[in-house]
């Protein structure tokens, strides 16, 4: 199923960068809330595939970048990313042998936890965004999880040493 790989910190950075670009590339405002949390999905993928390279520090740093980009309280997304990274690392061995739909379901749970955490910290530090639209990125993220894994696996195989 998932392609085992070692090494390739470069690949890690490259995919994270692509995910960051996808996060900020402008799309019509009418569908802007559909955009999944690309970077988080990439973090989950790498934490599953090569946890030795994509450690907690990687997840935390990605979250911090999102904080800087979206202008939230510094550390908010960093903490949320960190928690999801931690959960993925703990469940890693089990998740890897799951069938893909089951994996997508676990990812959905993680994305919902992530959204809730961000929502919660938003509420503590200022104005939380009170709209049900906020939960859609989690659904979209889980829905495209099979696609993401297959694309990333392909990239992985292509650029493996």
């Amino acid at each position: 199923m998932m392609h085992e790989s070692r090494g390739g910190f470069g690949r890690l950075l490259a995919t994270a960068l692509v995910a960051l670009v996808l996060t900020i590339v402008p799309i019509p405002t009418a569908i802007s809330w559909v955009r999944p949390d690309w970077l988080l999905l990439v973090v989950i993928y790498w934490s599953l595939v090569s946890p030795r390279i994509a450690g907690l520090l990687f997840a935390w740093t990605c979250g911090l970048v999102i904080d800087v980009v979206s202008g939230t309280v510094l550390g908010e997304h960093a903490f949320a990313f960190l928690l999801i990274g931690f959960l993925t690392h703990r469940l890693q061995l089990r998740m890897r042998i799951f069938p893909i739909w089951q994996q997508a379901f676990v990812v959905l749970l993680m994305l919902l936890i992530f959204q809730f955490l961000v929502f919660w910290i938003d509420g503590m530090t200022g104005q939380a965004v009170m709209t049900w639209h906020r939960w859609i990125p989690a659904l979209v993220g889980a829905a495209i999880w099979p696609l993401i894994t297959s694309v990333m696996d392909t990239v992985n195989r292509r650029f493996a040493r």
Binding site: L56, W60, L74, R90
Partner: peptide, 21 residues
């Protein structure tokens, strides 16, 4: 261990959140 690293980074996160906010 994983838990220790998580705890450490979480502490930093909360720290900078408080400082920033």
């Amino acid at each position: 261990s994983l838990g220790a690293r998580f705890f450490f980074l979480a502490l930093i996160s909360v720290g900078i959140m408080v400082l920033d906010h």
